[in-house]
Simulated assay, not measured.
Amino acid sequence: MTTILFIEQVLNGLQFGVMLFLMAAGLTLVFGVMGLINLAHGSLYMIGAFAAATVSAATGNFVLGLVAALAAAAMAGAVVEIAVIRRLYRRDHLDQVLATFALILIFSEGTRWVFGSFPLYLDIPEMLSGPVTLPGGIEYPVYRLFIIVMGLAVAALLFWLIARTRLGIQIRAGEADREMIAALGIDISKLYTVVFALGAALAGMAGALVGAIQSVEVGMGEPVLILAFVTIIIGGIGSIKGAFVGALLVGLIDTLGRTMLPLVFGSFMADASAATTVGSALASMLIYILMAGVLIARPQGLFGAAA
């Protein structure tokens, strides 16, 4: 593998990682504050992608599509929290899993009914299309760099929100002691709705950004949701810092593994197709091996609080 190819794959892994962070951050916020397992989080990712594709196609404006994705996912999240999720906080996790799994089916069939079964496509805006030349003569797509910058900017904004604002103080207090903040006069129901809508907006933003480099279709959120769960388990449930570090680890290990392992096996296997098959299969297992190792060594995750 050449140095240029390696750097390109590192950038691809970083882009994949920041997208995962947008998903995992909302997921870990909801679980940390509310103690809720939300399997429907991937559906909010899908809603953001469909909203962005529809509005962008209708207006010809990618920025409006991105704003529509944030708004649509946040509103869907708020409605779901008020209508369904609010009744699950005091139920056990099995009830939460069953109810949010039902929401996946409802969102999937509802999206298919509104938009049809055929995928939509979100065009990359002209100013973000094409490659850019990086130091060292590396050519890399401008849009992927845009995703990296946007993801890092949102991560910095989210860290500031949690650490420096009144809402962030309430969120951190809600993670530590829900009964106490309710006793202090904070409207816990309103706080839960805001947190759920914030997590939904982050998922919708991830869907909108990725929708321009892959097709927008029903069910696109579920594979990403699985990786987001792996991310927060590695980083530590309830930790934004853990979600960020875990997402970057998953993104880099998955991307570099899929590129490098087939080359490694190809160096000593005569059958090139077999080497690619074995290398790709092992690469797809790497993040789960990492998750298992973290759970064995540190069950609460890298940055999670000990039970």
Rank of each mutant, 00 (worst) to 15 (best):
G32S: 06
T28A: 04
A58E: 14
G301S: 01
V18Q: 02
Y45M: 11
G35V: 09
F115R: 03
V63M: 14
S108N: 14
V264E: 00
E217P: 00
L202Q: 01
I171A: 03
G204S: 08
V142C: 05
A24V: 06
A76F: 14
L282M: 09
L88D: 02
A58S: 15
I232L: 06
F265L: 12
A306Q: 14
S56L: 07
Y143R: 09
R90N: 08
A69D: 12
N38A: 02
G251T: 06
T259E: 09
S239I: 11
I232H: 02
L20W: 05
S117N: 13
V245K: 09
V230P: 00
Y89K: 04
G65Q: 02
L198N: 08
I104S: 02
D271L: 11
G204C: 09
A176Q: 15
V264H: 02
G221P: 00
P223Y: 04
Q170Y: 10
V30L: 08
W113K: 13
V194R: 13
I162M: 15
M127F: 12
G116N: 04
L158P: 06
K241N: 09
G185M: 04
V149A: 15
F118D: 13
A74F: 10
I104G: 02
A203E: 10
V210T: 11
T231P: 00
T277P: 00
M34K: 07
F159P: 04
E217W: 00
S267P: 00
L39F: 15
S280Y: 07
V80Q: 05
F16T: 11
I7L: 15
L286I: 04
F196V: 12
T28I: 12
D123Y: 09
L295Q: 08
F265G: 04
L88F: 07
L248R: 03
P119V: 04
G199E: 01
G235H: 09
A69C: 11
I106H: 07
